Measured scan of single mutants.
Amino acid sequence: MALNTPQITPTKKITVRAIGEELPRGDYQRCPQCDMLFSLPEINSHQSAYCPRCQAKIRDGRDWSLTRLAAMAFTMLLLMPFAWGEPLLHIWLLGIRIDANVMQGIWQMTKQGDAITGSMVFFCVIGAPLILVTSIAYLWFGNRLGMNLRPVLLMLERLKEWVMLDIYLVGIGVASIKVQDYAHIQAGVGLFSFVALVILTTVTLSHLNVEELWERFYPQRPATRRDEKLRVCLGCHFTGYPDQRGRCPRCHIPLRLRRRHSLQKCWAALLASIVLLLPANLLPISIIYLNGGRQEDTILSGIMSLASSNIAVAGIVFIASILVPFTKVIVMFTLLLSIHFKCQQGLRTRILLLRMVTWIGRWSMLDLFVISLTMSLINRDQILAFTMGPAAFYFGAAVILTILAVEWLDSRLLWDAHESGNARFDD
C-alpha cells in the first residue's frame, strides 16, 4: 500500500549564491595573561575582544583620537594649579581661619623630617597626573615632529594605576569627618577644581587605549598563520617573532617567553612588605597634641575612634588600611606557593584573586592621604596640633611594595603550573 505524501511548494523562490571570495581570516594573537594562541577576527570600533580561555580583555573598544586626548590633557593642565594650590577646605580653629590644600599637606610631611613619605604622596597625587598630561601632550606634538614615541607609550600603561586623584578625593571626605570634632569646616574653591580634575582624569584614563596608539604610530604586520613560536610582548602586546637582537619589532624591548626574574622580584617585594606591615600596624601612625597632652593612634585605634562619629567612614578606612593590605599579602603568598608547588586545582579562583588584588591594591594609600591633609588643617603649635607617627613611612612603603609585587608577577606562570593543553579552566 503506497502512502500519498503531499508536496510542499515554497511560496518564495530560494536563491543560492556561491561564495565568490575567501572568507576573511583572523590574525593570530597570544593572550598576555595566559599565553593562549588564538585567531582574533577583525574588530570594529566600539567592540571589545576577550581571550577565549581566561576571559582577559585583549582589545578595548573604547578609543579616543589623539586630538581629543590632547584637549583633555590641556584642560587638566589648566585645572591643576587651582586643584593643588587653592584651598580645598576652610576650618575655623580657636577663632582663626585655616586653609588646607594639597601642596601644603605634602610640605608639612616633608617639613617634619619625613621627606620619603611626603614624596610618596607627591608622586601619586601630583607627579603621576602631571606625567600623564605631559605624556599625552608629548605624543600629540611628537607625532607631528617625527619624534620617538616608544618610551612614552611604554610608560603610559604602567602609569595608570599610580594616578590616585580619586583616592585622594575620598581622603578629603575622611579628613573632614575627623577634623569636624575640633573645628567648623567649609569647602574651599580649590575643592571644585579638584573634583573637576578627578572627573576629567577618570574619563581620560578610561578612554586612553595605549594598544590602539601603538597600532597608529607603529603598525606591524600581524601573524596570519598559526605558529607556536609566536611570542607576545608584555610592553606593547604585539604578537610576532623577535628581531635579530631578540627584541620586539614594535617597542624594541627584549621579547622573552616569560617575564625575567618574575618570581624572585615578586618574592622579594612580598617578604619586604610583610616585614614592614608589622611596625606599620604596631607603631603610632598619627599623633595629636591637645592642650599640651599627647595622644597617639595606631591604624586600628584611629579607626575605632573614627567609628564613634561615623561608622560608615570608619568601615571604608578599615577596608583600605587593614583589610586590603593583608588580603593582598595572603593572596600573593598563596599564588606564589601554588606556582612553586605546581598546583593544578582552583586555577579559576587564583586568576580571579590576582585580578582582584590588581584592582584594589592602590586604595591602601588612602590613610597616607588623610594624614597629609589633616596635617595641613590642624597645626596650632602646642594648643592643638596633628602630626604623623613613625608607622606612616612603614605603611606607605608596604603598600608600594605590594603594588610592585602584583605588577611583577607574570600571570602566565600560573598556567605553566597548571596542566598543559587546557582550553578551559575551572575549579
Rank of each mutant, 00 (worst) to 15 (best):
L89Y: 09
T110Q: 15
I43V: 09
M1G: 00
P325T: 06
L132A: 12
C251G: 00
G293Y: 04
L149A: 07
G421P: 05
S309Q: 05
L94M: 05
Y28T: 14
R25E: 13
A272I: 01
T75Q: 08
A83R: 02
D60H: 06
W64H: 11
E211A: 15
V399M: 10
Q104L: 08
R380M: 03
R355G: 12
L282A: 08
E296S: 07
Y28Q: 12
F82L: 10
V313A: 02
I288C: 02
L300N: 05
Q344D: 15
G315P: 08
T358C: 10
R17A: 13
L353A: 14
G113H: 15
A196R: 00
K342I: 09
D181H: 02
L130A: 11
L373H: 09
Q29Y: 08
I274L: 10
C343V: 12
L373P: 02
W64M: 14
I126T: 05
W363D: 15
F333D: 05
M304L: 05
G95S: 09
S338D: 12
V331F: 14
R380Q: 01
P242T: 14
V357H: 04
S372E: 12
P10G: 05
V317Y: 02
L93H: 01
M147K: 03
V198S: 14
S45F: 12
I319Y: 04
L37N: 11
P52E: 08
M103R: 04
D381L: 02
I274D: 09
R62P: 02
A268Q: 01
E42L: 09
G95P: 01
K12A: 12
G421A: 08
L263G: 08
M103W: 07
C51Y: 00
A391H: 01
R247S: 08
F194N: 13
I131W: 01
L156I: 13
V198N: 13
K328F: 00
G302S: 01
P32N: 14
W92S: 03
F194K: 04
K328L: 00
L277I: 10
R247P: 05
V179M: 03
A183L: 03
L278I: 07
G421L: 14
A175N: 11
R250I: 04
E157N: 11
Q295T: 07
Q47H: 12
G315D: 02
A307E: 09
T15F: 09
K328C: 00
V232L: 12
S372W: 09
T202M: 15
I378A: 01
L78F: 04
L401G: 05
Y28D: 13
G146F: 03
W107F: 15
I288P: 01
L234D: 13
S206N: 15
F333M: 14
V195C: 10
L169R: 03
K111R: 14
I91R: 01
Q344C: 11
L368H: 04
E86H: 08
T298P: 13
P32K: 12
V102C: 05
I339Q: 05
